[in-house]
Amino acid sequence: MMIKYIDWKVTIPRIVAAVPIAILVFIPVFSTSRDTLSIIILSGVWVIAAMGFAMILRTGQFSMGQAAFMAIGGYASAILTVKMGWSFWPSFFMAGVISGIIALIIGSVVLRVGNIYFSIITLSFGEIVRILAQNLEGITHGARGLIPPSPEPIVLGSFEINFDASVVPYYYFMILLVAITSLVFWQINRSRLGGTFFSLAANQILAEHQGIYLMKYRVIAFTVAGIFTGFAGAFYAHFLEIITPYMLGLWESIQIMIMSIVGGVSSLVAGPLVGAVLLKVLSVYLSRLPVYGIHALLFGGAVVLVLVFLPKGTGLIDLWKKFWRKVFNEPEWYEIPSIDE
């Protein structure tokens, strides 16, 4: 019989972090107001997209076209349901697959050139997707956009989950989606893939000379991000029951990026989650302010302040770790050794 040693320094922060998550799961019990739940549901969409961005960033690449994959997922699902008459579930699944395939194709062509060039190419790609969506009238209905239906009810014996009646089913669907994404990303980060991704960003020349084929891992990260971002986009379209070319453009890609960075990319899951939820909620409340322009002003200002005043190279999530180090009175990570050995 093995006695498991419990490290309270790890366990207590986890328990404290679990409390808000538990509260989140039970929110619909207390309130079913469309308003409150919508904010959380929509933040969930951005959480997934931000996680995808963080994953690509892990490999040292800086994608500025993540919203395009949301748009691809959204349009794929919308076209399949509206034009081809598929039902929701298969088209939702196909949205992720299509988005993933497009990411795979684009990635294997484009990831050859890295760094700033990759950012500009993905930015261009995002714009191309937007312009095409705007102009391919026959498929996308142009600027008017498509109106995808809500999911069909799920019948479990006598019990029926109806997506039209309230947003609660959407809420749990979203939580499930975020949970699955988090689990997959967490597992990737923990496996050998995580270390390999990290080595690409940390020093690609060294990594290459250790036998790591850069393209392979960049494409893997890009594709995995593409798949989940596609799911998020499809969900977004079906939840809002509309998708237009203007919903997911360059500015949304930029927001995804900001959410990831502000949350902190030292962790693949928690950072983007915290960043996306906080910034989305902030953004929603700011947009209710009466003066036009103050929303953008405060949003931009808040992000700049966070970046300037946080320790360099960290995000909000690192404050959490720092807090617990203070609580347990642990020393900082390391002290620089003295010059002589």
Partner: peptide
């Protein structure tokens, strides 16, 4: 970490 990552092959 550096050496673990390098043991890739």
């Amino acid at each position: 970490e550096s050496v673990m990552v390098s043991a890739y092959l």
